[in-house]
């Protein structure tokens, strides 16, 4: 049990030193411009060599899959180690931010049960830096149906797993994935509000804003789907309350997106170009979310900004290296790969 003391000075210094191990923007671009052999040799000799070499020795997967696994193991290891270094307030607030891994896995499980599951025998690359273990996700994933999956959740008895249980119940009773995801996100937010409410300070406000921006993203994506005509009667669900910047009532009345995002940080996503497709707009929203998270890393050297930014940097590197590996393997043009990377300048 961790006490109420905090160790920001130790934690922040350690994480700032560790952040030097992340690839810089120029290095990522150089990797994207190289071929698969160059990427493989970087993984053999570079910062991911330990994880990549263990994959070479222990698995019979393709080189691409081995690279994906090496990235997953290395980033998970870094995040878990950073979390273990934190004590008191930063430890609890990091738990809130790292639970995005569980949220990601919950969504994957929901999608699996909502879709045709044939041909999905290969286990998913879980994000295992949150509260729940690989066994939990593996067993729920391998369950034959929703009822069996729920039995596994109850068997584990983790209160955090109940967030998924309620979403699965919704999916089972309505067959509506969007509605089930809405229940998932609502319960996820409710679960973390208690933790955050204990910290009525600048550090707690960062975690609160993170959750609020998640709600903003969900609401903006719903608005986009609605306007793109991608929404059917079954998938029509309400906007979520509790956004950081976007008022759900203003959004529901907005005819054009500029009305809703005016005066908010999200406006930068639409300033990139007037003639964007909805998909491009969604990507720019995601990118803005990442840029905000990474930018906090250097804001206050002794505050929660450092661990928060470190988590964002680690996850952005995961996404970027995956994008480079997949992009090269599928023969994408380097400029196209670089255009899809999260800017970590």
């Amino acid at each position: 049990m961790r006490g109420h003391s905090e160790n920001y000075s130790y934690l922040c210094a350690a994480l700032r030193a560790r952040a030097a191990r992340f690839y810089k923007w120029d290095e990522l671009c150089a990797l994207a411009r190289g071929d698969f052999k160059a990427l493989e040799s970087e993984f053999l000799e570079g910062r991911y060599s330990e994880s990549y070499r263990s994959q070479i020795l222990s698995s019979l997967f393709s080189p691409l899959r081995k690279i994906e696994l090496a990235i997953m193991f290395e980033i998970t290891k870094r995040l878990r180690s950073a979390h273990l270094k934190a004590e008191g307030e930063p430890h609890e607030l990091m738990s809130v931010i790292l639970s995005r891994g569980d949220l990601h896995n919950f969504r994957i499980i929901l999608r699996r049960f909502a879709s045709d599951r044939s041909g999905q025998s290969e286990e998913y690359l879980w994000h295992l830096y949150g509260n729940l273990s690989r066994d939990f996700f593996k067993n729920v994933w391998e369950a034959d149906d929703i009822s069996s999956a729920r039995k596994w959740i109850y068997l584990y008895g983790d209160p955090y797993g109940m967030i998924l249980d309620e979403a699965l119940v919704t999916l089972q009773s309505t067959g509506n994935l969007v509605n089930a995801e809405r229940v998932l996100l609502l319960n996820y937010l409710k679960y973390h509000q208690d933790v955050i409410s204990k910290y009525q300070n600048k550090n707690g406000a960062i975690a609160k804003e993170f959750l609020g921006r998640l709600v903003d993203l969900w609401n903006l994506n719903l608005w986009i789907h609605e306007r793109a005509g991608m929404q059917t009667k079954e998938t029509r669900v309400g906007y979520l309350p509790g956004g950081s910047w976007i008022d759900d009532k203003v959004l529901s009345k907005a005819k054009v997106i500029t009305e809703a995002v005016q005066g908010t940080p999200w406006r930068r996503a639409i300033s990139k170009g007037a003639f964007m497709t909805f998909h491009e707009f969604q990507w720019h929203l995601q990118k803005e979310f990442w840029i905000w998270q990474v930018s906090l890393f250097r804001k206050d050297p002794l505050g929660f900004e450092v661990p928060f930014g470190y988590i964002a940097k680690a996850l952005a590197e995961w996404s970027n290296l995956n994008m480079i590996a997949i992009g090269i393997a599928f023969g994408l043009h380097p400029d196209e790969i670089i255009g899809r990377l999260i800017p970590v300048k």
Binding site: S9, Y10, A14, A17, A20, L302
Partner: peptide
């Protein structure tokens, strides 16, 4: 106290400092 704990963490990660 603040500098010491931050210094210990930094030296542990980067001995050259």
């Amino acid at each position: 106290a603040k500098i010491g704990s931050a210094g210990a963490a930094t030296v542990a990660e980067k001995p050259e400092t």
